[in-house]
Every structure is written in C-alpha cells, then in structure tokens.
C-alpha cells in the first residue's frame, strides 16, 4: 500500500513536472533556446493569484488572472529579451534567460518581500480513502488536469494548422518561412502556451502546498528542465514521459527511509544514467547536423 500511494503521489507530482517541462521543451524545439526564466513565470503566476485572491477571493478567478498575466509576461519576455537575439550565439541567449530569471525573482522580492505568503484559499484539503489507501483531492485534481493538458496539447499539435506550423518551424525554420509561416508569430504562440501551462502548474503546486515565495519556481523549474532532458528535449511526448518518470522516482525514493534524504541526488542520477545510455533523451531524436 505504501508503494501504491507513493506511486500515485509520484504520478501526480510528475504531472506537475510534465506540465512545466512542456514549456521548456516546446520553446527549445521551436525557438531553439533554453528559457531558464520559465520556472519564474510560475512564481509570477503565484503572486498574481495572491493579488487576485485579496481583491476578488475566488480561486478560479485567481487561476484565470494568473494564466492571462503569465501569457502576457511570457510573450513580452520573448519580444523584448529573446527576439532581438535571434541569430546571436546560443550562449548570449542562455545568459539572457538566466538574467531574466534573476530579474523576475528580484522584482518579486522587492515588491512582496522575502517572507512567504500563505495562500490558504487555494489549498484543497481532504481526500478519499480506498481501504488502506488514501489519496488527496489535490492529487486527484493534478492527475486529471495533467491528463487533460496532455490530450489537448497533443491533439492541438497534431491536428491544428498552427500545431502543424509549430512542428514545421521546429524542424526547419527557413523552409517554414518559404511555406508562408510567420515564424516570429509561431514562436510567440509557443511562449504563450508555455506560460499558460506554467500558470496552471503554479496553481496545482499551491493547491497542495499553499506557501508562496519569490523562489517558488526555481526548484520545480530545474526539475522540470531535467525531466524535459530525460525525455528528450524538443519532444512533447518526451517531456510528458520525463516529467512522470521523474515524479515517480522522486516519490518512491522519498518513501524509502534510507533514500529519503538523498531524493534530489537520486533524481539527478537518473538524468546522468539516461544521458549515458541515450544522449538525446528517451524519446529524443538524434539530430542530423547539416554539413
């Protein structure tokens, strides 16, 4: 039973990682950059929920406000910080992303202070009990939201015109331009989707543990990035698989007393192991470099 409940909890926190990892992997696949500020968009979403809850009170209104604000923030970051660097060296883009990350964290600290805020209105307590197994409502909610996000996103990418254009841009930006695809618009849409997913992930995290601080997005961001790399960065199913895998490993390791203190180490060891065997991740494609 312990194992089963660890598994279910792992699927749930893995779902949150997967939702965040989708943002990393889509941006990497389409804009060819690592957006290290992605985790901090979650935190900005958290503070947006905090402010909305103070003004209006309802958790769903707060989620909607956070989603809208994160989308605007994500698109603005891309437009102001990353787009001018299109075609610049990847290192310049990477260091800019890290700079944006620190900027967001510092701004939040200046505005809201460094002591954590408790968003008790978001907390979902209680759960269901099946025999010896008890599952929190927040866990069930996370599982359900994860499933919906994965299905909707997969259908969108596979069957919509914009989704097809996203695949085209990720594969060959110039060829997509020749088809008449506005690649800048597609990149902006990708940032918008990733940022909306970050807001949703932030909501799910706060439902479980309603403590909000300016570094709230940092660790989940790194874990989700790890998950995206394990699954194969650039691959949407890879991010889903990597997120779930990392969450399950984390939860099971945490449930074993001897391993519990070393949970983070166990997770990152998985990354190293996967990369030793498959350098491009579990579902990643070997890139054929053009000569």
């Amino acid at each position: 039973m312990d194992f089963l409940s660890a598994l279910i909890n792992g699927l749930s926190s893995g779902g949150t990682y997967a939702i965040i990892a989708l943002g990393y992997t889509m941006v990497y696949g389409i804009a060819k950059m690592l957006n290290f500020a992605h985790g901090d968009v979650i935190m900005v979403g958290g503070y947006t929920m905090f402010l909305t809850l103070m003004a209006l009170g309802h958790p769903l209104v707060a989620l909607a406000a956070a989603t809208v604000f994160c989308v605007i923030l994500g698109v603005t970051i891309e437009r102001l910080a990353y787009r001018p660097l299109r075609g610049a060296s990847p290192l310049a883009v990477l260091i800019t992303a890290i700079g944006v990350s620190f900027l967001l964290q510092s701004l939040a600290q200046i505005i809201f202070g460094s002591s954590p805020k408790m968003l008790v209105q978001l907390q979902i307590s209680g759960g269901i009990t099946l025999g010896a197994l008890s599952i929190d409502y927040s866990t069930l909610l996370t599982l359900a939201v994860t499933a919906v996000v994965m299905v909707v996103l997969s259908l969108f990418v596979k069957y919509s015109k914009t989704g097809r254009a996203m695949v085209a841009v990720s594969e060959d930006r110039d060829a997509a331009l020749l088809m008449g695809v506005n690649t800048n618009a597609i990149i902006a849409i990708t940032f918008a989707i990733g940022s909306a997913l970050a807001a949703i992930a932030g909501y799910l995290m706060l439902c479980k543990a309603p403590s909000l601080s300016n570094t709230m997005g940092a660790m989940p961001g790194i874990k989700a990035f790890t998950a995206a790399v394990i699954g194969g960065i650039g691959s949407i199913p890879g991010a889903m698989l990597g997120g779930i895998l990392l969450g399950v490993v984390e939860s099971i390791s945490y449930s074993v007393p001897a391993l519990a203190p070393f949970t983070d180490a166990v997770e990152f060891s998985i990354l190293i192991l996967v990369l030793l065997v498959r350098p491009s991740g579990i579902l990643g494609k070997m890139r054929r470099e053009k000569v």
Binding site: R164, E171, A176, L178, M179, G180, V181
Partner: peptide, 26 residues
Amino acid sequence: LAHVPEGRRVFQNLSVYDNLLLGAYT
C-alpha cells in the same frame, strides 16, 4: 512566388499529407 529549396527540405517528421497542407498554409 513559391520556392522549392535545394535539398528538398521537406518536413521529415510530418506526413506527406501534412507537408502538402503546409504548402497551402497561406
């Protein structure tokens, strides 16, 4: 004004049908 690029540059991970639909993107 359409351009058939050197080396074909078809979208390898999309189906033939999806490639053609991208041709009709505009």
